[in-house]
């Protein structure tokens, strides 16, 4: 795995510059049921395809940003700071 990723602040870097933050998910807004909590903590979609995910520019500006990436090809569709991210359904 040695694709390039574009940090919204710093520009394009080797993927090794970044920390992977996993699939974008949402914290329950209020106290979840045991089942919901379990799903939130332990379950991931693990999509074979395009997924929205978090990245951290560990070796650079240390910002967290969002990306959409095809997990089959490592093709990165976009990256953006959370405030600038295109609206889209965030998988629960």
């Amino acid at each position: 795995m040695s694709f390039l990723l574009t940090c919204p602040n710093c520009g394009t870097r080797e993927v090794t510059d970044f920390g992977f933050g996993g699939e974008a998910s949402t914290r329950p807004a209020s106290r979840p049921s045991a089942r919901e909590l379990n799903t939130y903590i332990y379950f991931r979609r693990n999509a074979a395809g395009v997924q929205r995910e978090w990245w951290h520019h560990r070796s650079g500006c240390r910002a967290w940003f969002l990306a959409e990436r095809d997990t089959r090809t490592n093709h990165v569709i976009w990256t953006a700071l959370p405030a600038d991210a295109p609206a889209g359904q965030t998988p629960a």
């Binding site: 710093c10 520009g11 870097r13 080797e14 090794t16 510059d17 520019h57 560990r58 070796s59 650079g60 500006c61 240390r62």
Partner: peptide, 11 residues
């Protein structure tokens, strides 16, 4: 000015 990994450490 460029930030990024230099010698495997943030630079």
């Amino acid at each position: 000015c460029m930030q990024g990994s230099v010698a495997r450490t943030p630079g």
